[in-house]
């Protein structure tokens, strides 16, 4: 656990409670999850109780208290994607990876999440892998998309 990086993130914000969510977001993108050591460090530096940091980390969907895979798959189930067959795409991804939504494959390659709208409704159903948007996905295309990533 590289606490120096955590310190650097904490230093980049004013030392007050208002910065909490912002620095947790940065820690999330740096480490891909919120390690408990980081929570303790924020507690020491900002004097915010651990319970409160934990509450925030567990409330917001983007923050993860468990390590996530190398690639994050987000299948959109917003309304537009829902009516265009988003749930079937999610089923197909679950089926291909043999995991349920919210889980990570045992080789730490993929984490699968559902997301409530990525805002590109015109292209639904949409599937986001890391930063790549895949629009107008069909059940047949899911496998091809997953094969792009290693």
């Amino acid at each position: 656990m590289n606490l120096e990086k955590v310190d650097k993130i904490i230093d980049s914000y004013p030392a007050e409670q208002g910065s909490l969510i912002q620095l947790l977001l940065d820690i999330q993108s740096e480490f891909n999850w919120i390690p408990v050591e980081a929570i303790v460090r924020i507690n020491e530096r900002l004097q915010v109780p651990v319970s409160q940091i934990y509450r925030i980390a567990s409330f917001y969907k983007v923050l993860s208290l468990a390590p996530i895979g190398r690639h994050l798959i987000q299948v959109c189930l917003g309304t537009a994607c829902h009516v265009r067959g988003g749930p079937k795409i999610l089923d197909k991804v679950e089926d291909c990876l043999k995991i349920k939504t919210g889980e990570t494959t045992s080789d730490m390659k993929f984490t699968l999440r559902r997301v409530n709208c990525l805002g590109c409704c015109a292209l639904g159903p949409v599937m986001l892998v890391d930063n790549d948007y895949h629009g107008k996905v069909t059940t047949v295309k899911v496998k091809e998309i997953l094969e792009i990533y290693d």
């Binding site: 917003g78 537009a80 994607c81 829902h82 409530n116 709208c117 805002g119 590109c120 409704c121």
Partner: peptide, 8 residues
């Protein structure tokens, strides 16, 4: 914080 699914 446009969270409505289907709105952008």
């Amino acid at each position: 914080d446009e969270g409505d699914p289907g709105a952008f």
